[in-house]
Design a protein around this nucleic acid. Structure first.
Lengths: 344, 344
DNA sequence: TTGAAAGCGCTAACAC
DNA sequence: GTGTTAGCGCTTTCAA
């Protein structure tokens, strides 16, 4: 025999509430989850017991018993870059009212860390998992596919991958690049440049940018790759360091992969005495709040990050209510909008 | 009797791995958690079985059985305001390598939402809970105290509350206000103003600011309260809207509760043709990356958000390893640093 | 409207 | 080094 007390026994349980209220545990459970199924009088006694004991239901036990964790995992490259903040926000707002909790993990744009983070998330048996972008490795992809096969909702965001794992809520990063190049060409710019990381989405933006530039008879854009995870300082350094024919300062129009990079470039260019947009036009992506207020204000590609998070939440909630056999992954293109301001 | 299959039975379990490897479940469990306690040969068979089945341990079941969830909850006012991003970052970085997951919740600076978010977090039985700031209500405080009594590590951050619940990692918001006022006074500024939200920490900054202003014979600073959760646009609006004697545009030195507010004020002031710092000196708080690169660059109070997160993680990990009777809450003052740049 | 029994997938304790 | 047994706190099914 064993007494099994890993911790001091403490912790108020459903049983304690039940005894106090003079009912069985299952009645307490029902009173808490489906109050309508319990007689008002019983319910009142139970509620009093709950209050007097300060009972907080153990959701971990509930999750194990019901095979529903009411948990959603989100894997972002980083939380530092405010660019994903609205997506996290939209997701939490839409899920918390449904009783879901968010488990947050970061990959730091590193493949190994992504796999580890995913394993940690999946072990918590989330009902849904939201990826910013697509997995970087096959290993990660396989884990996600396996999770999906056993009923986890998988949603990729911030992109429209050709070979999605499950559902997708995003926008066409290549089309974004096309649009920015077209605008630069129409404005008569000749020496185009692109500054950003080397993740899939940034690369798609660049390819679209280069593609349209070529189509419109422009010289191939200069591409400056920043080591991920890149920050404003990296963009500034890239601007300052560049010399010779590869110099950013020779560009008359720069597309920055994110607004964060754009602000760095804006600062560096102005400090170098260049006028923006006259000497160098500048376009960012993300429409951070600062874009409206910088001087000059920043022309940027607006992405509705909050709606992306909300849509991901909706897809997960819908999918979870549905038997897996009639679950059809969805593909939602939220589009983007070029917000023309002063910088280009 | 019952067949109990809430979901299609699927899901690889420890038992499946055990059968495949020809051992008992507990041996598999050990091979996964304490490989040294299992014979190399057995371990190899188990590892092969794990790999071939794609087994992902169910951490929820493990958590229930061991009464250790390996989970830490963090409650932030908002993730949108990049001001807390580094804290979240520091916390995740320090915890993920230890196998912990982060459960994220937002209060939106609303008391009711804070209580709800806390209930959701506490139900997950986190081993630690990190608060940005202190609870807004007694209800929330009581919940945290109860959680602490049953062994949860509670850490308040971004402040040094007089009546802490458990451990604290923060800085003295009032002293920050003192320091900024002293600097303004030394620079000969006469008409001081403070712009920020009305949460406890912002208020403490204001009180310190006003206190030192008074001590140095200054007129009482103007205080502009922004409705929480406030953003850059609110600061801009406050600047633009103010008329008459309450006008921010009459101030010759403004202390903004956060860098986000400061950038809004900077933008608005410059757009109004005022020179910063000549006409209006400006100091922020947070030392966001942008502070180095804005034009003019922003004088600000640097807070080491990442270290705050890391320190909170350390306190939790230490506390969790220790029997609760010799747990003594700690109070860590990480201090702050006035970073003098161009704006003031 | 309420309850009894069984069991979710795992780990702690104690044997051997 | 490995296995047996019991049980974590809850929800499910089925019966009354």
């Amino acid at each position: 025999m064993s007494s099994y007390t890993p911790c001091p026994p403490s912790q108020t349980r459903l049983l304690d509430v039940a005894e106090r209220a003079g009912v069985s545990v299952i009645t307490v459970s029902r009173a808490l989850r489906t109050p309508a199924k319990v007689a008002p009088e019983t319910r009142a006694r139970i509620e009093a017991a709950v209050a007097s004991l300060g009972y907080v239901p153990n959701l971990v036990a509930g999750a194990l018993a019901s095979a529903r964790t009411r948990t959603v995992g989100i894997l972002v490259p980083t939380v530092s870059s405010s660019i994903f903040a609205t997506t996290i926000n939209g997701l939490t707002d839409a899920l918390e009212s449904e009783g879901y909790s968010i488990v947050l993990a970061q990959s730091g744009y590193e493949a190994a860390r992504e796999v580890a983070a995913l394993a940690a998330l999946l072990g918590r048996r989330p009902e849904g998992i939201v990826m910013v972008g697509s997995p970087m490795t096959d290993a990660a992809r396989i884990m996600l596919e396996a999770a999906q096969d056993r009923g986890t909702m998988v949603v990729e965001t911030w992109d429209l991958p050709e070979r999605p794992i499950g559902s997708v809520v995003g926008f066409d990063n290549r089309a974004v690049g096309n649009a920015v190049a077209a605008r630069f060409a129409a404005a008569g710019h000749q020496r185009l440049a692109f500054v950003g990381g080397d993740d899939d989405r940034a690369s798609a933006r660049f390819h679209g940018f280069a593609e349209t530039a070529a189509r419109l008879g422009q010289a191939p854009p200069l591409r400056i790759q920043l080591p991920a995870p890149s920050a404003m300082a990296d963009a500034v350094a890239a601007y300052n360091a560049a010399h010779g024919p590869e110099s950013l300062s020779r560009a008359d129009a720069i597309f920055a992969a994110t607004d964060v990079h754009a602000f760095g470039l804006l600062s560096a260019a102005l400090r170098h005495g260049r006028r923006v947009p006259e000497d160098t036009a500048l376009v960012g992506l993300g429409d951070l709040e600062m874009a409206r207020f910088s001087i000059p204000s920043l022309t940027t590609v607006r992405i509705d990050g909050a709606r992306m998070g909300q849509a991901a939440a909706s897809l997960i909630l819908e999918g979870v209510r549905r038997p897996s056999h009639d679950y059809a992954p969805k593909r939602i293109d939220l589009g983007f909008e070029l917000i023309v301001r002063e910088s280009g």
